[in-house]
């Protein structure tokens, strides 16, 4: 939400467009100083939403937001009272009057900054001409030395001639699920029931995991049935289902 205030001497003398105000103070200051505008037009709910609802990402400190809520409440109370009217012989609510006095004080404190902003806006338009040096002395990049193309070529050749180091000495563990399936099928062909623990006896954890995948795969395709009588115990693999 923004308003083209730059270049105008006084923001309080502008046309009022309720959609273009940034906050409750900005809007209310303009409204209350221009008596031709009825405070009944004040969109209190929209104002509360715009300040509190749509700005959830904003980090308010507790004191500020508490005060703002009090001000917005005073605004809502004022509008309600204007709408309903209050008999002259009725004692005014002292809390409501106090809240309104605080609201008035806040608006009076806020007004100079709204007007100073307008002054800065006008000044910004008037002072647009001069330009200043920008680059810090220490921040200037060092001059680039003219390069030697031959030196660049030699550097590139050395880089391109770099040989990949051999990794042949590194132990590669290979575990293939298809091979594990074949091994399990062979085991099941030798006997209708296979103990998983015996089947993987002495193999490493990767081969154990692959053997389990092989057993699950045979179970999935209906070639085997898995049975684990007790939790974390041995798995019995039964074949001959097809």
């Amino acid at each position: 939400m923004s308003r083209a205030r730059s270049g105008t001497p006084d923001p309080l003398g502008q046309d009022v467009d309720l959609d273009l105000f940034e906050g409750p103070l900005d809007l209310l200051l303009t409204l209350v100083l221009r008596e031709e505008i009825d405070l009944l037009e004040l969109p209190v709910a929209a104002l509360v939403r715009s300040v509190l609802g749509e700005r959830e990402e904003a980090r308010w400190d507790l004191e500020t937001i508490s005060e703002l809520i009090v001000l917005l409440s005073a605004l809502a109370e004022l509008k309600a009272r204007i709408m309903l009217g209050e008999p002259a012989d009725e004692e005014p609510d002292p809390d409501a009057i106090e809240a309104r006095e605080r609201l008035a004080a806040r608006l009076i404190a806020y007004a100079p900054f709204a007007r100073a902003a307008a002054w800065l806006g006008a000044r910004d338009s008037a002072c647009r001409g001069p330009r200043y040096r920008r680059v810090p002395v220490d921040g200037m990049p060092p001059p680039v030395e003219p390069g030697d193309p031959e030196a660049l070529r030699a550097a590139m050749e050395a880089l391109l001639a770099f040989e990949q180091p051999s990794v042949a000495h590194l132990d590669r563990q290979r575990a293939s699920v298809p091979e594990a399936i074949e091994r399990l099928r062979d085991a099941l062909a030798r006997g209708s029931e296979v103990s998983f623990e015996r089947h993987i006896g002495g193999r490493g954890p990767i081969e154990e995991a692959v053997a389990l995948l092989a057993a699950l795969e045979l179970s999935r395709v209906g070639e085997a049935r898995l049975d684990q009588p007790r939790p974390l115990g041995d798995i019995l693999i039964r074949g001959g289902l097809r």
Binding site: L39, L78, R81, E86
Partner: peptide, 11 residues
């Protein structure tokens, strides 16, 4: 400003 805020709603 004070008149409008403090006196609003009173008949």
């Amino acid at each position: 400003l004070k008149r409008r805020l403090l006196g609003g709603g009173h008949l």
